[in-house]
Design a protein around this nucleic acid. Structure first.
Ligand SMILES: [Mn+2]
Ligand SMILES: [Mn+2]
Ligand SMILES: [Zn+2]
Ligand SMILES: [Zn+2]
Lengths: 145, 145
DNA sequence: CCCCTAATTGAACATGGTTTTCATTTAGTA
DNA sequence: TACTAAATGAAAACCATGTTCAATTAGGGG
């Protein structure tokens, strides 16, 4: 299980002058110790291990804040729902395992050629992009045989 | 306004042995004559011009079918909602105007280098990808000044 | 260390998009 | 034209997410 920098996350919250509540700590810990994508309901459920009285409302509010300050990336699932994965700073995307939901970040998407070509063909000004790779993680590959 | 091949769409439905109902015809006509993305409610509203008794339920069912047979692409908006745009056969993606919602298709995404690099770094087997460009269409660019 | 207050919280309720149910209608075939 | 499986629509259910508001609490100032 990957463990990302829990203290770093807490510092980020403080740096943006958000209070460090038990509820937020619990959510942070869940995010810091997962190696998959999680949806809000699952995060809430897991967070209750540390903070039993936390409500879904607070989970959503915390996720919003974390996405705002860039500590979290919202992933878009084919069915339209969201899940969340911790995000390193900078421009990254996620590769998601269709078997188990594990999500890993990658960087180095170079779409400039594609973007330039599309822009000149369509007259659009391209402002951003949205990219996700779907695949199968090593564990899920071996399970298959 | 772009007009895509209405008869072709009807043939596709028949080829998959779906019945050609007045409701489905109405939805097809709406899709065939739009130049933007449309959400289900809007499609229903427009379809009532030709088939006043059509219900939202049927619109959703028809959209599902069309997405299944590849005649339609489901677009995912940043807020989590869906809209739909006609899809040419083959591997394409959409470029969406964040101003007015107009959507245009493009092809020729070449992600092989990126995919190979990510696959070898992570051990994942990459099975597919999901790409959308966001930008501003020519009309919306001039409106801005 | 304790106050104070603005920030935060959670239960209940509201919302909006989508799906399910089920009795009725209809397209396409024989 | 008669038949039947497929398709339909109104209503209700569902589910993720947002809003409200009275009660609680984190954390800076005294
Ligand atoms: Mn990128
Ligand atoms: Mn592609
Ligand atoms: Zn996996
Ligand atoms: Zn536009």
């Amino acid at each position: 299980m990957r463990v990302i920098d829990l203290e770093g996350l807490e510092q980020q919250l403080k740096a943006h002058s958000y209070k460090l509540t038990r509820q937020r700590r619990a959510v942070l810990r869940v995010l810091a110790t997962t190696d998959g994508r999680l949806d809000a309901a699952r995060i809430c459920e897991d967070a209750r291990a540390e903070c039993p009285e936390i409500g879904l409302t607070t989970v959503y509010r915390t996720l919003d804040i974390l996405a705002d300050i860039g500590a979290l990336r919202r992933l878009h699932l084919p069915d339209g729902c969201h899940s969340y994965a911790p995000a390193s700073p900078g421009h990254r995307h996620h590769l998601i395992c269709v078997g188990c939901g594990r999500a890993v970040e990658f960087e180095g998407c170079d779409l400039t050629a594609l973007v330039d070509s599309v822009a000149s063909k369509t007259g659009f000004e391209v402002e951003g992009h949205w990219l996700q790779l779907m695949g199968r993680c090593p564990e899920c590959q071996s399970k298959r045989k």
